[in-house]
Structure formats: C-alpha cells, structure tokens
C-alpha cells in the first residue's frame, strides 16, 4: 500500500525538518514536500532529508501547492494521499486514524476535524472555522464540522475525481464541493492540533480578537464570489 504524505510548505525552514522526521517516526516514508516559492531555505532543508521535494518557482498559495502535491502523488501512483500542514500543527500520530476509514472501505475522503475536540483551540479560531463552515455550506452545499482542515486523506478514486483551481485557503471548500459532486463518501475523524510557540507566532496577527474570524470569513466570501463569477 503506497501512502504518500503531501506537505505544502511556505517559509517553513525552521520546522520542516522536524515535521518530516516526526512523520517518518510514524513509519510513513513516502513524503512529498511542495515548496510554494518560499524565499527562505525551506526547499534546501526539506531536500536534505531525502524526501521528494518539488517547488513552485513563484508563490501561488496553499491551495495551489496542495493540488501540485496531489498531482505528484498521482504521478507516483499513490493508493492513498494524505495532506498535512507543514508547520507542525498536525500530529503525525493521527495519520493512522485518518486513513483507517479508507482502509476499511468506509470512505473515499477523510477529514481530520479539529472541531470534534476543541480543547486548547483559541476562541477566535473556533469562530473562524464556524463561519467558514457556514460559508462552505452556502456555496457548496456541504456541511462538515471543519471545512478548512488541511489534514485530509484521499483514496485513488477521490484524488483522481477532484481538481481544485482556487489558489488560496478557499480551495478546501472548493474541494468539498467537488467531493459532493463526485458523490464520494466522506467521513470526519477527530484530530489533535498542536499549538506550538512557532505556530502561534505565525498567527500572532490574528490575536485573540474574535472579530478577526469575521474579517477572514468576509474575505473568504469575497474570494468565493469572485471565483464563482470568473471561472
């Protein structure tokens, strides 16, 4: 069984090596890092670990990098593709639980949901996720507990049926719409989120001000409207 872990990475040279090492520790050695035009040493650091490292010459956003990673997995004939954040927020120990419904043939796509156990999650993020879930439901008719989770697993049927065009974070919602249209079976499993000092500093600008959730929700709506108008 060929399981490929896809890590879309942008300016993560401080942590990418550790993230890869932690994934390898769990027994997953097929790792694809997509350096999304980082200006730092992300590519070099990832490459030095011996994993498949590819790069976008220009930064295009998380959505674009994830789809490139999925395409790479497709080229390598993966049985299952798991997408994860590259900043260390996702616990590689959760991969096992994430792919289990696919191995049991109970689902084609599995979403690792942060919202099934929100312990330790900042309130602003909870609110942001809830707004994103509502927006996703309005635009794509799919209601899940964590529509923006980047920790997902796809079987071959799933990853060959979907292809996202949205370059930024909205691609997670777009993907859900395509999953629904392709009549794929979807399941959610709880995952842990690790809020390290590093990941917190990345989102420092969001602070604990819950109105930020609203602002991001509005931004997402604008981009979704734009994309639905100019496809």
């Amino acid at each position: 069984m060929k399981i490929y872990i896809v890590l879309p990475a942008y300016c993560e040279d401080k942590v990418i090596k550790d993230v890869i090492a932690d994934i390898k520790k769990e027994g997953y050695t097929n790792i694809i890092v997509v350096d999304d035009g980082s200006g730092d040493n992300t590519y070099k650091e990832a490459k030095s670990t011996g994993v498949i490292t590819i790069s976008h010459p220009i930064n295009r956003g998380k959505g674009a990098a994830t789809q490139t990673g999925i395409d790479a997995g497709k080229l390598l004939n993966a049985d299952i593709i798991v997408t994860m954040d590259s900043d260390g927020q996702h616990d590689p120990k959760d991969i096992k639980g994430l792919i289990q419904p696919i191995l049991n043939d109970k689902a084609d796509v599995v979403i690792g949901s942060r919202m099934l156990n929100t312990k330790g999650m900042p309130k602003s993020r909870i609110m942001m996720n809830k707004i994103a879930n509502i927006v996703t439901y309005i635009f794509f008719g799919v209601l899940v507990s964590d529509s923006q989770s980047g920790f997902r697993a796809y079987n071959r049927k799933a990853y060959t049926s979907v292809y996202t065009y949205m370059d930024r974070y909205e691609f997670e919602s777009e993907m859900l719409g395509q999953i629904k249209n392709s009549k794929l079976r979807i399941q959610e499993v709880p995952i842990k989120v690790i809020y390290t000092d590093y990941s917190k500093s990345k989102y420092k600008h969001m602070g604990s001000f819950s109105a930020q959730g609203l602002v991001n929700g509005v931004r997402m709506v604008v981009r979704l409207i734009e994309n639905s108008l100019f496809k």
């Binding site: 590819i54 010459p57 295009r60 395409d71 065009y165």
Partner: peptide, 12 residues
C-alpha cells in the same frame, strides 16, 4: 499556477 505546477512536477 498551471505553469508553476508543470515546472514543479518535472522533477517528479
């Protein structure tokens, strides 16, 4: 984006 992707996938 598609051009970026094409270039990135060449290595694979």
């Amino acid at each position: 984006t598609l051009l970026n992707r094409k270039l990135a996938l060449e290595d694979v």
